[in-house]
Design a protein around this nucleic acid. Structure first.
Length: 415
DNA sequence: TCTGGGGTCCTAGGACCC
DNA sequence: TCTGGGGTCCTAGGACCC
C-alpha cells in the first residue's frame, strides 16, 4: 500500500529565526514580508493573540507593543538554506520526495499490512528535528489532497496524523470545504451558494455534476477527496515555467527613469537566476502597477517581448525593455511596484548553437560577472541599473544575520 | 503615512484558417 | 443588398497556493 505524506515545517520562518536565537523560544515572534509590509509568519504566541496571517504590519503594531514581541524582516537566504537541510534529511529517509514549497514536501511512504504508519511518520519527524532543529508536522493519507488535510490535524495533535478511510468518514461532516487545499474564496462562495458546506456534501454530489459545475479542477478534487490518487508525487525536478523578479516601491513613483532603473535591476537578477539553472528564456513580460488599494487599481499594465532567439543574456534583454516601457508607462499614475517575468524557459543545452555568433564570448563575460557577484555580494557589478536614487529600494529594518550563508555572520560558540 | 513575492494551472475568447 | 461553421492555437487574466 502506498501512502502519501506531507511534511510541513511549523511556523517555518519563525522557527528559522529561533534556531539562532534560542532566547526567543516561547516568546511571541513574527516575521514580516518584504518591505516590512505584512505579517507572513507567526509563532504560536502570536496566533494566540488573534493576529491573522497576512495582516499589514501597521495594523497590529499597537497590539504587539506591550508583549515584547520579536519582529523580523524576511531573511530569505537563511530560510532557503535551512529549507534545503530539511529537504535533505527527509530525502535520506524516504524514496520519493517532491518539494512543494519552501517549507513543505510531499513524499511516498511505502508500507505493507504490518507497518505501523503512524510510528513510521513519527520516526521521520523526530529525525528531521534532530538533524535540523526545525520542528515539523507530518500528515499521511492516500493522496496529496488528503495528506494536506491530515497535516492540519497533525499540527493540532502530536505532530503526526494518519487520515484513513474511517477517520475521514467521521471528519467529512465537520471539515468545511474552505479548509481543503485548492478551494479558495471564489470556489467556496460558489459552493456555499449551492448549499455545499462540507466534504460530505461535496462527495454526495455525482461526479458528472461536479465536472459540469466546477470543471476539471473540481472533478480532480472530488476524486482525491474520495480517496483516489490522481496527483502523483514526482521527484524529478521539472524545469521551471517562469522566473519572476519584482518589488514594491517604498513610496509611489512617477518618474520613468526610476522605473527603468528598477526594471533593469529585476532583469539583471532574474537573468542571473536563469543562468544559475542553465535555462534560456523565450521572452520576458514587464509589468508596472499602482497600489492594489487605491484609485488607480486598474491602471497597471504589462507588455511582452519575444526574443529573436531564446536567451539568458542580460544585455540582450535590457536592449528591449525600455522601448516597451514607453508603451505602457503613464506619467499620471503613482506606481507602486514593477517587475519582470521570464517565460518560455527551456534547457540551454537543447538550444542549437547558431554558427558564427558570439554567444561563447558573451557566456564567458556573463559567467564572470555572476561569479564576481556571488563572491563579493549581489550588487558588486551592476548592468543597466544605475541605482542613483534609492527611491525604489525596499525596507528591511529588522533583518537578522545571514547565519548560515555569510562568513562574517556565522555564530561563534564560546564555552 | 504604512497592505509581499514567486509560482502553477485552467479557461474564455480572440485570431486565424479552411 | 445578401456574408457559415467548425476547428486549432494562443494569450491575458483569473484562481489558487505558500
Amino acid at each position: 500500500m502506498k501512502y502519501v505524506g506531507l511534511m510541513d515545517c511549523n511556523n517555518f520562518f519563525v522557527s528559522c529565526e529561533r534556531l539562532f536565537r534560542p532566547d526567543l523560544q516561547n516568546k511571541p515572534t513574527l516575521v514580516l514580508s518584504s518591505n516590512d509590509g505584512c505579517v507572513v509568519a507567526r509563532s504560536q504566541e502570536i496566533k494566540d493573540m488573534g493576529i491573522p496571517m497576512g495582516v499589514p504590519y501597521f495594523k497590529v503594531k499597537d497590539i504587539i507593543k506591550d508583549s515584547k514581541t520579536a519582529v523580523f524582516s524576511s531573511n530569505f537566504s537563511l530560510y532557503r538554506d535551512l529549507s534545503a537541510r530539511v529537504y535533505d534529511s527527509l530525502s535520506e529517509q524516504v524514496p520519493t520526495v517532491e518539494q512543494y514549497s519552501i517549507d513543505e514536501s510531499f513524499f511516498y511512504l511505502n508500507a505493507d499490512s504490518n507497518t505501523d504508519v503512524e510510528r513510521e511518520a513519527l520516526s521521520i519527524k523526530n529525525k528531521i528535528e534532530r538533524q535540523t532543529g526545525i520542528p515539523v508536522s507530518i500528515g499521511v493519507a492516500s493522496n496529496k489532497t488528503l495528506a494536506k488535510l491530515a497535516s492540519k490535524f497533525a499540527k493540532k495533535d502530536k505532530g503526526v496524523f494518519v487520515l484513513d478511510t474511517e477517520k475521514l468518514q467521521k471528519l467529512a461532516l465537520e471539515v468545511p470545504l474552505y479548509d481543503i487545499w485548492g478551494i479558495g474564496i471564489n470556489l467556496n462562495k460558489s459552493l456555499q451558494s449551492n448549499n455545499i458546506a462540507n466534504v460530505a456534501d461535496y462527495l454526495a454530489l455525482d461526479v458528472a455534476v461536479v465536472r459540469k459545475l466546477y470543471g476539471v479542477v473540481g472533478e480532480r478534487l472530488w476524486l482525491e477527496l474520495s480517496g483516489k490518487l490522481i496527483n502523483k508525487v514526482c521527484r524529478k525536478k521539472t524545469i521551471k515555467q517562469s522566473i519572476t523578479h519584482s518589488r514594491s516601491f517604498n513610496k509611489a513613483i512617477f518618474t520613468k527613469s526610476v522605473i527603468e532603473d528598477a526594471l533593469s535591476y529585476h532583469t539583471r537578477m532574474a537573468a542571473e537566476d536563469l543562468r544559475s539553472v542553465n535555462l534560456v528564456a523565450t521572452g520576458v513580460k514587464i509589468f508596472i502597477m499602482p497600489s492594489r488599494h487605491g484609485d488607480y487599481v486598474l491602471q497597471g499594465l504589462s507588455a511582452n517581448i519575444i526574443f529573436d532567439t531564446p536567451t539568458d543574456d542580460t544585455f540582450a534583454m535590457l536592449d528591449n525593455i525600455n522601448k516597451v516601457l514607453n508603451g505602457i508607462y503613464k506619467a499620471s499614475v503613482p506606481y507602486k511596484k514593477a517587475g519582470i517575468t521570464l517565460f518560455g524557459l527551456i534547457d540551454k543545452s537543447s538550444l542549437q548553437n547558431k554558427l558564427f555568433n558570439n554567444t561563447v564570448d558573451k557566456n564567458i563575460l556573463l559567467n564572470t560577472l555572476d561569479n564576481l557577484n556571488k563572491k563579493f555580494g549581489k550588487d558588486f557589478i551592476k548592468i543597466g541599473d544605475r541605482q542613483k536614487s534609492k527611491m525604489w529600494q525596499t525596507k528591511a529594518d529588522k533583518l537578522s544575520p545571514a547565519y548560515t550563508t555569510r562568513w562574517s555572520d556565522i555564530p561563534i560558540v564560546s564555552a
